[in-house]
Amino acid sequence: MQIFVKTLTGKTITLEVEPSDTIENVKAKIQDKEGIPPDQQRLIFAGKQLEDGRTLSDYNIQKESTSHLVLR
């Protein structure tokens, strides 16, 4: 499924993911596309910070959901 990640600069990154993917996996995909190390990434969805060990389905992130990327 596709999800979108919006950066603070207003850029939207499109990612191909599975509901069973962990947040860690998603951060690795963002690193592949954008070159941002996962330890600098914070992903926010529905006002919550997403934890590495959880999956997209844990957070009820469905296709075409948009989460926000904040850099630390």
Rank of each mutant, 00 (worst) to 15 (best):
Q62I: 11
R54L: 10
D21F: 07
T7D: 06
Q2H: 12
G10D: 04
G53T: 10
G53R: 09
T22K: 08
Q62Y: 12
P38G: 07
V26K: 00
R42V: 15
I61A: 02
T9P: 04
Q41L: 06
M1A: 03
T9I: 07
L71T: 07
S20H: 12
G47S: 04
I61V: 07
L15T: 01
E24Q: 12
E18K: 14
Q49M: 13
R72T: 14
K33D: 03
P37Y: 05
P38H: 10
Q2F: 13
V26H: 00
M1D: 02
E51T: 06
L56F: 03
Q2R: 14
Q40I: 10
K27A: 01
V17Q: 01
F45N: 04
R54F: 12
L15P: 00
R72N: 10
Q41E: 01
R72C: 14
I44E: 11
Q31F: 15
F45A: 03
Q40V: 09
Y59R: 01
N60I: 04
V26E: 00
Q41S: 04
D21I: 05
E16R: 09
S57V: 07
L71D: 05
V26A: 02
D39R: 11
E18R: 14
T55I: 06
E16G: 06
E34T: 15
G47K: 04
Q41D: 01
K33E: 07
S57Q: 13
I30V: 05
S67L: 15
T7H: 05
S57A: 14
P37H: 11
Y59E: 03
D39L: 09
P38F: 12
N60Y: 06
K11G: 07
E34S: 13
Q62K: 12
I13H: 03
Q31M: 13
Y59W: 02
I23H: 01
E51M: 11
S65Y: 08
T12Y: 11
K48E: 12
Q41P: 01
T7N: 06
I13Q: 01
L71C: 06
G35I: 02
V26N: 00
E16K: 09
M1N: 03
K33W: 06
I30Y: 02
N60W: 04
T7Q: 06
E51I: 08
K33V: 12
G35Q: 05
S67R: 12
L43V: 03
D52H: 06
N25S: 15
R42K: 11
P19V: 07
Y59I: 04
L8T: 12
E51H: 08
Q2G: 04
L69Q: 02
